[in-house]
Amino acid sequence: MAIHPTAIIADGAKIADDVEIGAYSIIGANVSIGSGTWVGPHVVIEGHTSIGKNNRIFQFCSLGAVPQDKKYAGEPTRLEIGDGNTIREFCTFNIGTAQDVGVTRLGNNNWIMAYVHLGHDCQIGDNTIFANNATLGGHVHVGDWVILGGFTSVHQFCHIGDHAMTAFSSAVAQDVPPYVMAHGNRAVPAGINAEGLKRRGFSPEQIRSIRNAYKALYRKGLPFDDARAEIETEAASGKEELAAFVRFFAAASRGIIR
């Protein structure tokens, strides 16, 4: 291990042999760090925190601190970080609470820019990009391939579906369906993330199908239940790209942006 002599590693921490830890970083007793991970200087990793392989964690991050929740009473909740993530300067990720699943999770291959906050019990998928100062309240769920613009704020308990995207300074107070772009305070729909879908290999037919689903939700003047039924019928006919809508509708908790 390449551990700077000024770093403080508590007894009990489980650190792979090739982990690098920079000057003045502090690693708690209930922390595990996987192979290939680099931890910069002045990082604090505490609590029951597990970090996977090949992550890069930049200076002044605080990972695994107790939740900013007055109900928290010292329960042994967790923070779990997967593999291949980049976590830039001054990010703050809190452990979960007993009132939810008790775990805050960040998946794999996420690009997390400076000053991002993940509140307690957030569940983040894979291959996301969170631009500077994106802030997530507690219990927020974010799917795969989501992009959050800088200074995006997400209200607690909101869900953001796969491949969705927010503009900078968006204030998300309700659920954002998959593939949808959102902007504004409060955030409203602004079309689908067509360019992102092209880059990820979606066919023109699949993108057309997603556009039609968007029209059902936002352009036809349908009540939500009718739009949902139309999309679920299309998904059942074999349009796999619409399965993300079906999963999203089943899990959504705050009502979708309209």
Rank of each mutant, 00 (worst) to 15 (best):
A29C: 11
S25P: 06
A65E: 15
Y72C: 07
I21M: 05
I8R: 11
V172K: 02
A65P: 03
N132L: 02
I87Y: 07
T166F: 03
C122Y: 01
V19D: 01
G36T: 05
G143T: 04
H139K: 08
V116P: 01
H141L: 00
C61D: 10
A131H: 03
G28H: 06
G34A: 03
F157L: 10
I210C: 10
Y214F: 14
A2P: 09
D175Y: 08
I45C: 04
A173Q: 15
A190Q: 13
H117D: 00
R258K: 15
S32M: 08
G255K: 01
D121R: 00
G102E: 05
G52L: 06
I112C: 05
V172W: 03
E240N: 07
S153P: 00
E240Y: 00
A229D: 10
G138A: 04
V172L: 02
I129M: 11
T104R: 08
N94R: 14
Q99E: 15
L148A: 11
Q156K: 08
V39M: 04
G34C: 03
D11V: 11
S25D: 05
E195A: 14
R200T: 10
A227F: 02
G119W: 07
K220I: 00
H117K: 00
T49D: 07
A134L: 01
V31T: 09
I160W: 02
K70E: 12
N132E: 08
S253P: 01
F224Y: 13
P76M: 04
E195Y: 14
I3G: 05
K198Q: 14
S50M: 08
A7W: 05
L222T: 02
W38H: 14
H120L: 06
F157E: 10
R254F: 06
K70H: 13
R254Y: 06
R199A: 09
A194S: 15
G22W: 06
I129W: 03
S32Q: 09
H155L: 01
V176W: 06
I87N: 05
R208M: 11
I210K: 07
A173M: 15
V246H: 04
R199S: 11
F245W: 10
T86S: 14
S237G: 06
I45N: 05
I27G: 03
A131E: 05
C91T: 10
S25F: 08
T37G: 01
G40V: 00
V180Q: 07
L79C: 10
T135S: 15
V39K: 03
S169W: 04
C61A: 14
S32Y: 11
H4P: 02
T77V: 12
N133E: 07
R105D: 02
G12R: 12
G28K: 04
N127C: 12
F93P: 02
I210L: 11
W145Y: 15
M165H: 13
F58W: 15
G137M: 08
L222S: 01
T92I: 12
T92D: 10
